[in-house]
Write a protein that binds this DNA or RNA. Structure first.
Lengths: 151, 151
DNA sequence: GAATAAAGTTGTCCTCGACAACCTTTTACC
DNA sequence: GGTAAAAGGTTGTCGAGGACAACTTTATTC
């Protein structure tokens, strides 16, 4: 198992890649459960998008495609999915007739608030022994890592 | 944007979830490129599995399913894919007639060594400003996070 | 020695992103 | 001011890849 004891940078990258690989596979379950808690038919991927919308406010589909680094066609379908479930609202962008602004609906906000409560309980259960410092460090490092991959 | 300044634990979880979501989407591209560097027809997912095998030595399919937390059927197909490309070897498990031990082939080891060189150059380019400490911390925290998700 | 469990394989289904063609609106440029 | 190029979205098609379940083969258990 790769741990912090591993000193070489090459080995660290190796470890990073593997943890990411494991994470990609494992996280699906957790996100999936959370998505179903918001709405039984909500897809995992759309849940992440909805959560993003809730925190960042109304935005264009193209901006989301940019943020997530995925195809605009995929975004379009996700938004449609969220519309079907009544979890997002769409409004024409006053600044650009081609664009529409997507935002989390009131229902979605309420459901997400519930889920955040559940998540808090989950946190206490699974990550109870983590300090807020560790948590903050992980979020910070992940954010920097994501940014670094961008360029 | 959520940063380390965010203090509440609930907010931290929110940030973690979002960074993980972004990461999952973005990392696919990088892993995909790396996979193709090992073999043009190698799938991303199989690359991660191969890399795991190289570092952890021969293991059963069931052990991999356990490690990755995915279905044994998926593992079976991935191993088959790697066999088709000549990147893994299979040997009967002397301790259990039902099981087979899967290991990275000599060819795979050689290719992976090349790719590790490339990855090192990529590291210097993208994460050049990261300290080994930061890298080690990220790997460690990710590992602990993955473990926490398990239970 | 029959019942149960575990290791793999295979078939079917679903999620989800990539790529490309296309339509609409906006912007740029002459 | 009119045409060309670019940007925002939608939709069709495809492939990767995991979930679930049925099934075969070999171990284990009582």
């Amino acid at each position: 198992m790769v741990t912090a004891r591993t000193t070489g940078r090459t080995d660290l990258l190796q470890g990073l890649e593997q943890e990411v690989g494991v994470m990609i596979r494992r996280i699906r379950r957790v996100i999936g459960e959370r998505a179903r808690a918001v709405h039984p038919d909500l897809q995992s991927s759309s849940y992440l998008m909805l959560s993003w919308l809730e925190q960042h406010g109304p935005m264009r589909a193209s901006a989301m495609a940019e943020s997530f680094g995925i195809d605009k066609g995929a975004i379009s379908r996700q938004v449609q999915h969220l519309m079907d479930l009544g979890l997002v609202d769409r409004a024409p962008d006053p600044e650009d007739g081609r664009a529409t602004l997507v935002s989390a609906s009131a229902v979605a906000e309420a459901r997400l608030a519930d889920v955040h409560g559940d998540r808090r309980r989950w946190l206490d259960e699974k990550l109870g022994d983590w300090s807020s410092d560790d948590l903050a460090r992980l979020v910070d490092l992940l954010g920097r890592y994501n940014t670094a991959l961008d360029s």
